[in-house]
Design a protein around this nucleic acid. Structure first.
Lengths: 218, 218, 218, 218
DNA sequence: TATGAATGAGCGTTCATTCAT
DNA sequence: GATGAATGAACGCTCATTCAT
């Protein structure tokens, strides 16, 4: 069966919000991309802002769920970080549009709609801070500014959504592994040799990576 | 003497573009913030888009100049990276609005105005890639995916503009030093102990850090 | 049924463009005259300029069609001129606004929109020049400057749109007949007596003729 | 000495009002064409509308003066018409911009400024109607609709301003003579042969005649 | 004389949204 | 469901004009 109309609307919104921004995307752009009249759009959404909030909520909920699942029963901080990074990077590489929308538009939301989204984000971030604190407590991490380090690592992993392309030479797995290594290094973990990261060379990470937005680095 | 009117316009634009986005900022918002009528605004700017491009150009030009100056006569890749990171982080911490505008709005520009901006950015990036390549060649850096690492490090250093507050407990110097360390770790440089980074603890990096946009991590 | 909204818009535009000029007519004037909000206007038109071009195109197309039809199967130059003048004058008397808009605004159009309009006008004019040339060739017309004469005659017949009123004492038929006579005289045709034009006196052609624009002569 | 600034302003206005229309000409266009700032413009004019009215007034006053002078002591209706046409056509050929502005913008003026202009125009027209009436009374003219004929003739002679170019093959003298003939024919005067108009052929009246506005006929 | 600075009003057009059909 | 019709508000920008210097 074809994609349901409501889903088509949401997908159009995700793509447009990600590429042109919320304020840069008009209701008519949305309608056109969803092959609907702009009036019909309103059968599938509330306001434009609610549509945005819904996208952000779902994206963050997914991320939180995946991370929570991935951490279940794992207590070793190094392994927890591995999993957090993998989940985060994978999500941002696979759904760059969704995650960019979720990451970039919190300030657009009015207080009412912002609340839920912020809570989800904070819950998600707590997984990271708790893990890092535990690693420090256990002495397996070594960083003078854990909060700054956490933010830095998150920014670094989040950035993936803005440049990674699965059509480039770098597999999703390698991408994730590389970010795991970068993160562990940032946290001062001495990574044992032979983890498969230490020697291969990247030819060019992501040639298809697209437009201006991301020749940063290409 | 008071600030010249044209400068007031630019400052208003920097603040508003940074906080509400280019499309989220209306010409009337700008006028109000610059204490001018919307008609008078046009004595000090071309189009709204040209105003944006001007801000971006100047910001990137500054960054490029500062980095170029800082690297003058320095050939040791480690020292070069230290300086690049310091310049980058300092600029982003001191002028978070300018840098955010410059970093976030390339895709907004029409081709004509985009050209110059992209060139500046590419020139700036080249300083980083050249330095990293040289370090790899000399064997002082160790990273399997230098391009990815470079992007990651830049994202991490750029992120500073979104959360750092000079009113927080972290001095600009410490901030820069910490990012130098994170970057060198990412590049696989074994930092000798006692460099002053390895033991202090951050209480809370930046309590005044502001709105929702940055409780990411606070 | 009442007039369709789109038609109402066009009629308002015709009247306003004719009386106040294209640049003198604001989109809000148009909206008010069409009893619509200025936003709604845009359901029935493209840009204001396209609205103008459409009016001009239709007007000229009608004129061309009517003239072509009137000339079908007629080869006598005198009779052809009779018919051309009759069609032209009648159209300008009956639809003074449409024709004034079509006659006065060619230079307003941007090249893209101008092209079609100019082509129609040139095709129409060709009917006149061909006819006049043929009459000269046959020796039934006598004028030293046929091109100038053609322009003069056209200006004279076109002017009707600026002053004729059907509420005046002059019937449409007499108006046309009189212009036929003027035209044939200009072309040096010796009009046989008794054609009904040679003796009646006009009391006052058109007292209701309207504003200042045409008391020229009233 | 160079042209006085005030005169430069007026000339710029004449050209621009003629080609782009009053409403189509902005104060900035005027300033640029007069090589002045738009503020300085106001040292040489009142409002834009008063500038227009001044141009129209002067143009019509000139026309009226010239015609009055030309008619002085001439009582023969045919000769009077000759002179009226010659004056009118010459003025319109020599100062096409001034006359177009004067002819086309009466309805633009507000009542206060319109009054004088209309009076001048009516006085001028009276010369024509008086002459025609006299010719009819004397039996030298023969036209069933003298008012219509007068308007038609005036339209025809006025049109010259829209297409004649002194760079074309038609001399100003021939142009005037031809229009005299057309007018006399319209008035039913049997023109004696040998007046110099009856045989020469125009190749192409006015090739330089310009743009779209006047390929009507070219 | 000349102009930079300033503006209230208005330009043509598009915005997000509603509603009757 | 789907949409054409409709709109008040706002968009970026320009208008004609004034005034202090």
């Amino acid at each position: 069966m074809a994609v349901a109309t409501g889903e088509r609307v949401r997908r159009a919104a995700v793509k447009l919000f990600a590429t042109k921004g919320f304020h840069g995307t008009g209701i008519r752009d949305l309608a056109q991309a969803a092959k609907l009249s702009s009036a019909s759009l309103y059968h599938y959404m509330g306001t434009k802002e609610e549509l945005l909030a819904g996208i952000m909520r779902d994206c963050l909920r997914n991320l939180l769920d995946e991370a929570t699942t991935a951490l279940e029963g794992v207590s070793d901080p190094v392994e927890r970080v591995r999993r957090l990074v993998t989940v985060h990077v994978t999500a941002h590489a696979r759904q760059p549009n969704e995650t960019r929308v979720a990451d970039d538009n919190i300030e657009v939301l009015s207080p009412r709609l912002r609340r839920d989204v912020v809570r989800l984000r904070d819950d998600y971030e707590a997984l990271w801070s708790d893990t890092i604190e535990e690693g420090l407590r256990e002495g397996v991490f070594d960083t003078a500014q854990p909060t700054v380090t956490r933010i830095a690592v998150l920014d670094m992993c989040t950035g993936v959504a803005r440049w990674y392309s699965s059509r480039g030479p770098l597999s999703l797995r390698l991408l994730a592994e590389h970010h795991v290594e970068l993160t562990l290094r940032a946290l001062g973990v001495r990574v044992s040799a032979g983890c498969g990261l230490a020697n291969s060379r990247d030819p060019q990470a992501c040639p298809g990576a697209a437009a201006e937005g991301r020749s940063w680095g290409e």
